[in-house]
Every structure is written in C-alpha cells, then in structure tokens.
Amino acid sequence: MLTQSDVERIAHLARLEIDQGESKVFSDSLSRILALIEEMNAVDTSGIEPMAHPQDVGLRLREDEVTETNRRAELQGIAPATEDGLYLVPRVVG
C-alpha cells in the first residue's frame, strides 16, 4: 500500500512534480502494482545468490588510452543553454 505522502516523497526523490490529484491516481495504481509485486513472496529465496546480470561474465577492461577528441561545439549545439563553453543552469546553492 502506497499512501499519497509516499508518492510525494518518492516523486521528490525522482524529481517529478506531482500535484494532489496526480498523487491520488498514482497512489492507487502504484499500490495495485505493489500488490502484484508482492506475489514474489510466495517463493522462498533464502540462500539464493542475487542475479544482477543475465550473463555470468567478469568486467572487461580497456587500456588506458585517450581515444576521444574535443567535440564541444557539436555536443553543445544540442544543449538548451550554454555560454562560454559551460552548460547553464539556475544557480546551484552551495
């Protein structure tokens, strides 16, 4: 069961703006999804190794070489706001 205040808390963590009406709707549908999810409890998983990756392989490592070149102009060409090569955002407090 997810309350509206749960929804508001996780919405803030996820940086989503959700108004009262939406939080009601989401708390309903998310609670139903959570009930579905809790069907997992039917299975005893104690002692089972968690499986984060579908293939059982180790990390491949690359050599320490610089392979990328400066593409700032191109990459900033698609940015919402830049100046003097910097990405602009509302003032960061700190």
Binding site: L16, F26, L34, I48
Partner: peptide
C-alpha cells in the same frame, strides 16, 4: 509510474524486500 515504482523499490528500507528479492527470484 515506472520511475516512481523503481524509485520506491530501491529506496531505503525497501531494497531488500523488493529489489534484492527480485534479483534472487530472477536467478
């Protein structure tokens, strides 16, 4: 909806019951 549910199952206090449980079930 999916971002919210995903944020919830990873959040403090719920990780083991949901996320870790699902990884084990996956195996």
């Amino acid at each position: 909806r999916r971002i919210l549910i995903g944020t919830y199952v990873l959040s403090a206090g719920y990780y083991d019951a949901y996320y870790l449980k699902a990884l084990k079930l996956r195996r």
